[in-house]
Design a protein around this nucleic acid. Structure first.
Lengths: 195, 195
DNA sequence: TTTAAGTTTGACAAAATTGTTAAACAAAAG
DNA sequence: CTTTTGTTTAACAATTTTGTCAAACTTAAA
């Protein structure tokens, strides 16, 4: 860090994340980011050199944050059911704040050409899948390809928040009502996934 | 139509839809669209006047197509379970071809300021919700807010296709394997939703 | 208080994207 | 064949977005 830190660099980055992940403004311009942050646009270049570099940083941190959250949950020493309950609680909380984070990751992957994950990452996923398989063997959850279990879990958590603007309209609900509906899902998803 | 139809207008629109809905290139430029269609860029202006108008048309048609698909399924005269089986089959097929269509709708809604649905549309949704409620009363499906049932259903169908690029990497699967996994879901989702 | 280093700003330049126009072209109608 | 009408193209213009730079500013250290 430099000798004098005004927090502007973080402010810009956080504002960008808010526009991308929270508001779903997936193609915000540097001007829009600067305006939202209340700073001069050239500061984006001063701190990040270019728009692309800012995007890359946000992209990488989004991935790291997501993986960190999942790792924290899975490397904790709990019985499987507890882990899942915890995962739902933690993930849904983050997803309610940043519903479009995964979407941003996906669309950025589509813009460039798809990257491949680190071996360590894939290993962790496999460990999770094995843990799921173990539960199936125990009979706690319905038998299927463990990937389906993981896919189901994340679909049930993430998608309703992505489609919130559309759902609110179709269901005739305001923000508050819809949030309440999402809260209910913590319990509901757990019940669907097990049993 | 005009006296001489070269099909170029449709070609441009279809190519745009393919970039947006199939490839997830949610912010393709007119040049990228023209290139993908193999036509001169100015034809986009000739046929659509402006980029915005093209986007608006694609947006409206995406919504119409989505709703039409759902209406066709729900206004058909079948028992509930059959309808759902049919919905899964039809929707998943479309979603495999155009995984990002709903996403495009959502992000366009976020770019402008959210529109409100026609009353007729909301009425149809309510009819569907009532039908779900009826099934719950009959005991065919787990009792919950019918909106959850609808949300669960669409989440399980749509999200795995949206996150395909990420999932393929994390699960170490190629396109073919992942498609096979998605095929399996037709049956799987049905089993999760009922019971 | 002067200096030095980082920060912020506005003016400007460059690049990317979109839109316009006139002319060339192609095909159907007269 | 000529005319008419719709289509396509290339050159150009306008706009939007991004990037650069020097000067002004601010604060900490000398």
């Amino acid at each position: 860090m430099s000798s004098r830190d005004t927090g502007t660099e973080q402010l810009i980055k956080n504002t960008a994340k808010h526009l991308f992940f929270a508001e779903g403004k997936l193609h915000a311009t540097t001007q829009e980011i600067a305006d939202a942050a209340g700073v001069n646009r050239t500061l984006v270049n001063y701190y990040f050199r270019s728009r692309d570099i800012l995007f890359d940083q946000v992209f990488n941190e989004a991935q790291e944050d997501l993986f960190q959250t999942l790792d924290d949950v899975f490397e904790s020493d709990m019985p499987f059911k507890e882990k899942i309950k915890n995962l739902i609680s933690v993930f849904l909380k983050e997803a309610m704040q940043f519903p479009y984070r995964e979407l941003f990751i996906i669309t950025e992957m589509n813009r460039h050409d798809v990257i491949n994950a680190k071996k360590a990452r894939i290993q962790k996923v496999n460990t999770f899948l094995e843990e799921i398989q173990l539960e199936m063997d125990k009979g706690t959850i319905k038998t299927m390809n463990p990937r389906h279990f993981a896919i189901n879990l994340f679909s049930l958590m993430a998608y309703p928040l992505v489609t919130a603007p559309l759902n609110r309209i179709l269901f005739g609900m305001n923000d508050e009502d819809y949030s309440a509906l999402m809260e209910e899902r913590k319990q509901l998803i757990f019940e669907i996934i097990f049993l």
